[in-house]
Amino acid sequence: MSNQPRILCLHGGGVSAKIFERQMRYFIKSLEHDFRPVFADGPWLSEMHDDLKPVYSHMGPCYRWANWKPHHAPMNDASAIREIESALVKAMSEDEGQGEWVGLVGFSQGAALAFSILLENQLRLERDPSSPGFAGVHWQFGVIMAGRGPPFSMSPHTQLNHHFKSLTQLPQGRKKSLRSDPFATKLRTPTLHVHGLGDGGLELHRDLLKQSASPAHSMLVEWEGAHRIPFRSTDVNRITEAIREVANFQQPPAKYAPIPGRGVFDLLSRGYLVVDSHDKRAIMGPSGDITTIA
């Protein structure tokens, strides 16, 4: 049996674990010596996403993690959270691997959920350091592919907080970015954000990063593509290398003096967002100015 560290992979809305595994096959191959991927199905049946039908129409049924169509049945938030946690625990318990559970990987609706779970774990530990993690795990990192904000509320403690949305709330048709809110809770678990520059929801994906992720603990890879999983070798290689960097992140000491070029997270310790676009590294300052370094 495999003792590799395990990552739990969460599909988008109107997809399935089987389809998501097929879409991620190039990443699975590239990371085969690093992680054992495990794919979970959402708790509720869903129609297949329209973008998948030309290729995957024979690979139903499909599932969802939250409501995304007007006709999806209303849910009670507390029971919805329990069903999601049960779905994750089921997938984890059925896996034959023996390695530690270390990371969450998600695309679209699954990416938003992965981010939300990481943030929920952080809030739990802030309230009580002995609190168990969501699905029994305190996840060490996340890969957030085309996930839009704001995060889902994953407990009663955040249900009335306007920085979170309900699992039963339909996606908004908003196209403009929100103004940065200095009082919003920032995720400090290391995350890699993957954004397609041709994705119609790009600004919403950038909102999640800018509004809810600590710049000292997050990394961004941009690629030339729409709302789908990258498959070109140049994109896959850049993203898998970034996944390794995020997974190996070590928070530097408070008085640590970063050395430019030594490592991507040495730069992040300055409080900047590191952007990896077209095989170039850059640092983004608080005002949005970007300086290429390599």
Score class of each variant (00 low, 15 high):
residue 5 P to I: 01
residue 7 I to D: 05
residue 7 I to V: 08
residue 7 I to K: 12
residue 9 C to R: 12
residue 11 H to S: 07
residue 12 G to C: 06
residue 13 G to F: 05
residue 15 V to Q: 07
residue 16 S to M: 10
residue 16 S to R: 12
residue 17 A to N: 07
residue 20 F to G: 10
residue 22 R to E: 06
residue 31 L to N: 11
residue 42 G to Y: 10
residue 42 G to N: 11
residue 45 L to V: 03
residue 47 E to P: 08
residue 48 M to W: 05
residue 48 M to H: 07
residue 52 L to G: 06
residue 53 K to F: 01
residue 53 K to R: 11
residue 54 P to I: 01
residue 59 M to C: 04
residue 60 G to C: 02
residue 61 P to L: 02
residue 62 C to M: 03
residue 64 R to E: 00
residue 65 W to K: 06
residue 69 K to D: 00
residue 69 K to T: 00
residue 70 P to F: 01
residue 71 H to C: 01
residue 74 P to R: 09
residue 75 M to A: 04
residue 76 N to C: 04
residue 76 N to T: 01
residue 78 A to P: 03
residue 84 I to S: 03
residue 88 L to H: 10
residue 90 K to R: 12
residue 90 K to F: 05
residue 91 A to R: 14
residue 91 A to T: 06
residue 91 A to V: 04
residue 94 E to V: 03
residue 97 G to P: 13
residue 98 Q to N: 14
residue 102 V to Q: 15
residue 102 V to T: 12
residue 104 L to Q: 10
residue 112 A to R: 15
residue 121 N to C: 11
residue 123 L to F: 04
residue 124 R to E: 02
residue 124 R to S: 04
residue 127 R to D: 02
residue 131 S to V: 00
residue 132 P to S: 05
residue 137 V to R: 07
residue 137 V to L: 03
residue 140 Q to Y: 01
residue 145 M to A: 03
residue 146 A to P: 05
residue 147 G to N: 07
residue 148 R to I: 00
residue 155 S to F: 01
residue 158 T to M: 02
residue 159 Q to D: 03
residue 161 N to C: 01
residue 161 N to M: 00
residue 161 N to R: 02
residue 164 F to D: 00
residue 166 S to N: 01
residue 167 L to I: 00
residue 170 L to G: 01
residue 173 G to Q: 04
residue 177 S to H: 02
residue 177 S to Q: 04
residue 179 R to D: 01
residue 182 P to K: 09
residue 189 T to P: 13
residue 190 P to N: 10
residue 191 T to K: 13
residue 193 H to S: 11
residue 193 H to K: 15
residue 193 H to I: 04
residue 198 G to R: 15
residue 202 L to R: 15
residue 202 L to Q: 13
residue 203 E to I: 09
residue 203 E to F: 08
residue 205 H to Q: 14
residue 205 H to N: 15
residue 205 H to T: 08
residue 206 R to Y: 10
residue 206 R to Q: 14
residue 207 D to E: 14
residue 208 L to M: 14
residue 210 K to N: 08
residue 210 K to T: 03
residue 211 Q to L: 13
residue 214 S to G: 11
residue 218 S to Q: 11
residue 219 M to D: 07
residue 219 M to P: 13
residue 219 M to L: 14
residue 221 V to I: 06
residue 221 V to C: 13
residue 222 E to Q: 15
residue 223 W to L: 07
residue 223 W to C: 07
residue 224 E to I: 06
residue 225 G to M: 08
residue 232 R to F: 03
residue 233 S to V: 03
residue 236 V to H: 09
residue 238 R to W: 03
residue 238 R to Y: 03
residue 241 E to G: 10
residue 241 E to N: 09
residue 247 A to H: 11
residue 248 N to L: 12
residue 250 Q to L: 12
residue 253 P to H: 09
residue 253 P to W: 04
residue 255 K to V: 02
residue 256 Y to I: 08
residue 256 Y to A: 15
residue 257 A to L: 13
residue 258 P to L: 12
residue 263 G to N: 14
residue 265 F to P: 15
residue 266 D to Q: 15
residue 266 D to V: 06
residue 266 D to R: 15
residue 270 R to M: 09
residue 272 Y to S: 11
residue 282 A to D: 05
residue 282 A to Y: 05
residue 287 S to C: 06
residue 289 D to N: 11
residue 290 I to V: 05
residue 291 T to A: 06
residue 291 T to C: 05
residue 293 I to W: 06
